[in-house]
């Protein structure tokens, strides 16, 4: 019997999105200098090493900056968002120190002045569409 081992996924946006669909926010870690990279990178910009490994993040962080989008891009308009139904996008700083752009849920998009930088957040996933058309987006939810 041959043992089936999962090959290491390439450090690409496609792999990152595949992990999101599996409910994991994955980063890459440089095995030479230890620096964590999110979004995942194939080359470490700190030491230029090409030796990286996938690492699941803690999924715990806080809001570093945000906006409530009223004039939305087409793909969000198609999801029903826009002037009458704004949504929150933000930059989240994980407890590991790395930052990532994500949708922010669990806050009131109609009261942006009450949303605070520093709000504690945990990772969440938003799946839109079904079957082959399903796409999972990264989100963080206010604790």
């Amino acid at each position: 019997m041959t043992e089936i081992t999962e090959t290491v996924r390439p450090f690409t946006a496609a792999s990152y999105n595949q992990y999101l669909a599996e409910g994991k926010l994955m980063a890459s870690r440089c095995t030479d200098c230890g620096t964590l990279h999110l979004p995942p990178r194939a080359i470490c910009p700190k030491c230029h090493s090409e030796n990286l490994e996938w690492t699941e993040t803690s999924g715990v962080g806080k809001l570093a900056g945000f906006t409530v989008v009223s004039i939305a891009p087409t793909f969000m308009i198609e999801q029903g968002y826009g002037r009458g139904n704004p949504y929150v996008s933000g930059i989240v700083e994980l407890e590991e120190g790395v930052k990532i752009s994500a949708r922010i849920t669990g806050v009131d998009a109609t009261k942006p002045q009450e949303i605070k930088v520093g709000t504690p957040l945990t990772v969440d996933f938003i799946t839109v569409g079904e079957g082959e058309k399903a796409k999972t987006y990264l989100a963080f939810k206010a604790v």
Partner: peptide, 19 residues
């Protein structure tokens, strides 16, 4: 793939800088 997927627009990015 990473920023726009989060729903950001250009006004949105600068709004995040502003916050």
């Amino acid at each position: 793939p990473f920023e726009i997927a989060a729903g950001f627009t250009f006004p949105g990015f600068y709004a995040a800088i502003a916050t």
